[in-house]
């Protein structure tokens, strides 16, 4: 009997397998840690984060540190050629173009960031309420969204500009008014899918108030989509600001769009004044877009290994 059993053990010896192939050999990784790890493991992410960080640092630091003023008219520097002193030359007011360009970046980033934050917040709250409430409230909110989405944002910008005067806050306000619609639609769609999940039913049957269900259980679960739509909203808002400044309907402050507009006029005599702001705007948009893309891939559970 004994020998027979030993013989069986001999026959059915488990196949040796590599540690990594065994399911229980995989370390437990939380979703968030996995996202961060996958996001940072993409080589291009590091490169573009560094570039973006440099651009932002320049926007913040150069206007403060630069010894050359960019207000008033500096007679001796008017239309100065690029030199050791004026790296990108000076414009028709005698302002150092290098300093002015980064000053313009401040406007672009300010508008892009605040417009994206506000429109995401409003979009999330309205979309979540619409999706969770359902019925008439949902119908009504969605019809309003449908109508607003077909109003060209130029009209809103025009009206807001004429009422509030032109400043970057006007542009932010106008962009928020038109920008929250897409986020609201997106979040509503997510909530519609999520609200039939068991954990929602569990919370509801335990008598948790609708607001708590919404903000504790539902909205956090849409966060992935919201983050991605936020990263796409930032370059979108920066683009709109640049576009409005370019066609002369901007904030009236120095921005990359307004610099490109003036650069267009002097492009034969001072090509740098067109090329530099165009290049830095394009590079910024590229960086943000790429980081947003990588973040979306990292957040996608289907791509999780």
């Amino acid at each position: 009997m004994q020998t027979q059993k030993d013989g069986l053990d001999e026959l059915f010896r488990p196949e040796p397998c590599a540690e990594a192939e065994r399911m229980d050999a995989l370390p437990q990784v939380s979703y968030a840690a996995d996202v961060v790890k996958r996001f940072l493991n993409t080589p291009s992410v590091i490169v573009f984060s560094v570039i973006l960080a440099i651009i932002i640092a320049c926007c913040v630091l150069v206007p403060i540190l630069s010894p050359r003023p960019i207000t008033g008219i500096i007679d001796e520097a008017i239309n100065h050629k690029p030199s050791a002193e004026y790296w990108l030359g000076a414009d028709k007011f005698g302002h150092d173009f290098f300093t002015k360009m980064w000053k313009g970046g401040q406007t672009s980033f300010k508008v892009g960031f605040f417009a994206a934050v506000l429109q995401t917040l409003i979009g999330v709250v309205v979309g979540a309420i619409s999706g969770y409430a359902g019925g008439r409230i949902d119908q009504f909110i969605m019809r309003v969204v449908d109508v607003f989405i077909s109003i060209p944002y130029m009209v809103i910008v025009l009206v807001v500009r004429l009422i509030m005067g032109s400043s970057s806050y006007t542009i932010i306000f106008a962009l928020v008014v038109t920008g929250w619609l897409n986020t609201a639609r997106l979040v509503r769609g997510q909530i519609l899918q999520l609200k039939n999940e068991d954990y929602v039913l569990a919370a509801q049957s335990m008598g948790v108030s609708p607001a708590t269900v919404l903000f504790r259980h539902l909205i956090p679960n849409t966060l992935g989509v919201v983050i991605v739509s936020f990263t796409l909203a930032v370059p979108q808002a920066m683009f709109s600001e640049a576009f409005l400044s370019f066609i002369g309907m901007g904030s009236g402050e120095v921005s990359w769009g307004s610099l490109i507009r003036t650069g267009m006029e002097v492009r034969f005599r001072h090509p740098w004044q067109l090329i530099a702001p165009s290049a830095v705007l394009a590079l910024t948009m590229l960086c943000i877009q790429l980081l947003g893309d990588s973040l979306r891939d990292a957040l996608d559970p289907k791509l999780r290994k």
Binding site: A242, R267, M285, Q289
Partner: peptide, 18 residues
């Protein structure tokens, strides 16, 4: 295509006109 999406159309237009 990433470049095509991120570069604003007015930058492309001004550059190509020039």
């Amino acid at each position: 295509s990433l470049v095509g999406i991120s570069i604003p159309s007015f930058v492309v237009a001004t550059m190509s006109v020039t």
